[in-house]
Design a protein around this nucleic acid. Structure first.
Lengths: 344, 344
DNA sequence: CTGAAAGCGCTAACAA
DNA sequence: TTGTTAGCGCTTTCAG
């Protein structure tokens, strides 16, 4: 009587109630083989009446086919990660897959193995690795080669099935925008890089070199927006700094805060640009010039690639998209005296 | 030779290689029964040599015990949700559980069932429902009663195993703070409520009534920070408005933007407070007065409660924590003329 | 189209 | 302590 004590119906219960054999029930469940309309209806009625839900565990065991996608990420609450995961989940749900999340916080192999052990012992259809930071990159190498894998990141790499957001091209375009405004060079604040050099930094450097501008030393920020404040202060103290490109919008907000605290204005004295087009970027004072990254789309594309591989398709192993430059009010031409100084 | 074609080792392979029976391998795996050191070592060596990883599906099927926790949420990329999920995942990983995420976007029973069907067919140890919005609330009722469930939310409700962040107390305190500053009353901008009335709104109303202040009409915002802009404009147009309490920090940022665009100052003309202590709240101009919510802690506490229930403990069914008021610079006494108008 | 028989990889009694 | 014997709930041959 107590529903909480009723144990779930099995396929045998359904078969009995519908007056058919167990394999017939299985056939209507999987839709694999033809079943006469009469029996099919009887089975469906029994399923509904019993509230039967097939056990995924038994199913996986018998069919050797899983319906779970594991997502491995270095972080889940950062804007970009959270959005990417949202896109993955959305696409997975549409394809009747379920998403499992595992966070890896370290780059140490043993720690990674420990973190992903519970997940890898699950029956997995495939794995999505968010390769935006060192832990994500390290985790990629610990996935058994027998599992279909797709990497999502900001830089193309050979030999990998991956969906990317072409950050270096976008960063190059953003740097060009600043240079076009008349700045002699552009400083860069880097967020924790995924490799020796991430796409944003690469694009920035490439634009500077192509235009013959000096490549100033990098500043390194953490993921915490407040880490930008001190960097902003330091940059503001250097009178030759007129343009700063930050690795993400949140750091840009911190940097602006630090610059303003030092008594210099944005963009009048110093232009500051971010990256990502965070939901608050347009609300910031001043509204941020940035690059719109479609993270949710990246997640969807990545999952699609993975599903293709799972289906055994030999087609595309790669999907790239170019983020869009969004010019707002935090970037402007350098102040007149800076321009003069440059010419001299 | 090709590792990608090697099929995974089974427990039988391990047993054969170690020269023991299958159940003995199982015993060292589960640690349930005593095994002689010699055999244990042989088994462990075989496991390592073969890179054996037990199949969770088979394990679940045989033992009827799952190691997966499903998290059902209405959103995953919002700051509060993302942080809560991070806390859940962290605690789950520590307890060797794995976390599965499912998003429900609708409040329609059929759609919810469709969304969670794939997840519920998995062998689940328990379910965490993030009950902060209407889809989350609706989803709670669609979980089979046979499954251990814990609800995470901002308001206590009887009959539920739940971890809460006592929002109404905190909202009351925040409203009191504004009233203490000398404001005649406080306006409220609500984010999509989880019930007829959410904790933030309840606390606000309670404080106002207790202090004998007028309860002004509510404004409703969406989750998009930009929806606050228009509301800010409208509020700024009403000269009697001197204090606004927004349902979250992001909306507060939008509201401030709208107020400033209308030519009024924050906090000089109008005080604005948020809720959540978003990572950018302290960087905003002006830095936001808000309430610090420990979402990650909420997630950890909730998961702990769920683990207790799974372990069959009859102990605490409830865990509550009081968010902390954080006073920064977006709130101040009302302008002198407003005070006069109030006395008259 | 349908049913009978045989597992999937593991754990849980039960003897030994 | 250890091995033997039975399944867990489902899918997959294979006959019919």
């Amino acid at each position: 009587m107590d529903p909480s004590r009723t144990k779930p119906a099995t396929i045998a219960d359904v078969a009995a109630r519908a007056g058919v054999s167990v394999p017939t029930v299985s056939r209507v469940l999987t839709g694999a083989a033809k079943v006469s309309p009469a029996k099919r209806e009887a089975v469906e009625a029994a399923i509904a009446a019993l509230g039967f839900r097939p056990s995924a565990a038994a199913r996986v065991l018998a069919s050797r086919k899983a319906q779970v996608i594991a997502v491995i990420a270095g972080d889940t609450s950062q804007y970009g990660y959270a959005e990417t995961i949202r896109g993955i989940e959305e696409a997975a749900r549409a394809g009747d897959y379920t998403v499992m999340i595992t966070v890896v916080e370290s780059t140490d192999d043993d720690e990674i193995d420990r973190a992903i052990a519970a997940t890898l012992s699950q029956p997995l259809a495939g794995v999505c690795v968010l390769k935006f930071d060192p832990p994500g990159v390290a985790a990629l190498h610990r996935i058994p080669p027998s599992l279909p894998v797709v990497a999502l990141s900001g830089v193309r790499e050979p030999g990998l099935r991956q969906a990317v957001l072409d950050e270096s091209r976008a960063a190059e375009e953003l740097t060009d925008h600043l240079l076009d405004l008349g700045h002699a060079t552009v400083h860069h604040v880097r967020v924790p890089p995924s490799r020796r050099e991430d796409g944003r930094t690469t694009g920035w450097r490439r634009a500077l070199k192509r235009r013959g501008a000096v490549v100033p030393p990098l500043s390194d920020a953490s993921w915490d927006p407040r880490s930008g404040i001190e960097i902003g202060r330091r940059l503001a103290d250097d009178p030759t700094v007129t343009a700063v490109f930050c690795g993400n919008d949140e750091i840009a907000m911190g940097v602006i805060r630090g610059i303003v605290a030092s008594g210099r204005r944005v963009p009048d004295d110093i232009s500051v640009a971010g990256f990502d087009d965070h939901p608050l970027a347009s609300l910031w004072t001043p509204p941020l010039t940035t690059v719109d990254q479609d993270f949710a789309g990246l997640g969807r594309r990545g999952l699609q690639l993975l599903l293709n591989e799972i289906a055994g398709e030999t087609g595309r192993r790669f999907s790239s998209e170019r983020p869009q430059l969004v010019v707002r009010e935090s970037t402007a031409p350098p102040p007149a005296d800076a321009a003069v100084r440059r010419i001299v």
